[in-house]
């Protein structure tokens, strides 16, 4: 079906999310809590757009709004911009020192709020992406804990995460970089737990944590990770290089 986004006629499948359609057409809608690989959380609200259907206007979160009719969409109407600014200011009240939020404020010409004290600030905007990613991976080591003003992302009982495999997917997916991972001298620290990093025997770069390698092995029931002798693992690049080498020798 055809829909119109910011004046541009776009082809969309019934049930497709508005954000997906817009992105495919190269129309920018800001998002924080969206990731293509995970179900929509609709928690940051930044992706709001105005939808006009049979003359009725409504504001929807485009990341979870399925297209079902021939609608007209405005991603940056006056109303949307006003609302989005408010949303950014609310996020800024929570994470005033955060870089991602800072950039958004700049982009929308907003001033840093000075009403809020720094002590209570955090980088986490509680979008829930990290917990969703962790669950998808199958570890489920972290979740949202408590509610209201004391809500946070944590491991059960704030203990060193028993179920954590040290993959750091949470940290890499986090839109605001709120999760601390520390990789140094062959170990990784995350969620209060220290992991051993397996080193690529060829280039010497850390590849994955031992727990992560074990986990993947169990998951795939085969041996997708190339272990050599003492349980070391090759990184992707060296794996490719060694495959290419073998290929060369085989055919030359």
């Amino acid at each position: 079906m055809k829909i119109v986004i910011d004046g541009k006629v776009c082809e969309a499948e019934r049930g497709e999310y508005l954000l997906t359609v817009a992105r495919r057409e190269g129309i920018h809608i800001p998002t924080l809590c969206h990731n293509d690989a995970l179900p929509g959380l609709a928690s940051c609200r930044l992706c709001i757009v105005e939808v006009v259907e049979k003359g009725w206007h409504k504001v929807v979160t485009s990341c979870v709004y399925p297209v079902s009719a021939e609608i007209e969409v405005f991603t940056a109407s006056e109303k949307i911009l006003r609302m989005r600014k408010t949303l950014i200011m609310l996020l800024a009240a929570r994470a005033p020192e955060n870089e991602t939020i800072g950039k958004l404020m700049q982009e929308y010409g907003l001033e840093k709020p000075d009403r809020f004290k720094k002590e209570n600030s955090s980088d986490c905007i509680l979008c829930g992406l990290c917990a969703s990613a962790c669950e998808k991976i199958g570890a489920g080591a972290i979740s949202t804990v408590h509610r209201g003003v004391t809500k946070k992302i944590a491991t059960p009982f704030d203990d060193p995460a028993a179920d954590c495999i040290g993959c750091a997917a949470c940290a890499s997916i986090c839109p605001t970089g709120a999760i601390k991972v520390q990789d140094k001298s062959g170990t990784r620290q995350i969620w209060n737990k220290t992991f051993e990093l397996l080193i690529c025997p060829d280039c010497g770069k850390p590849v994955v944590t031992r727990e992560q390698a074990e986990y993947l092995r169990k998951q795939m029931q085969g041996n997708p990770i190339e272990y050599s002798g003492d349980g070391t693992v090759r990184c992707e690049r060296c794996k490719k290089a060694s495959a290419a080498d073998r290929f060369r020798t085989a055919f030359s």
Partner: peptide, 13 residues
Amino acid sequence: ELPLSKIYSLATF
């Protein structure tokens, strides 16, 4: 057969 984090999340909510 759920992660403990799920139960903890509910119990604290």
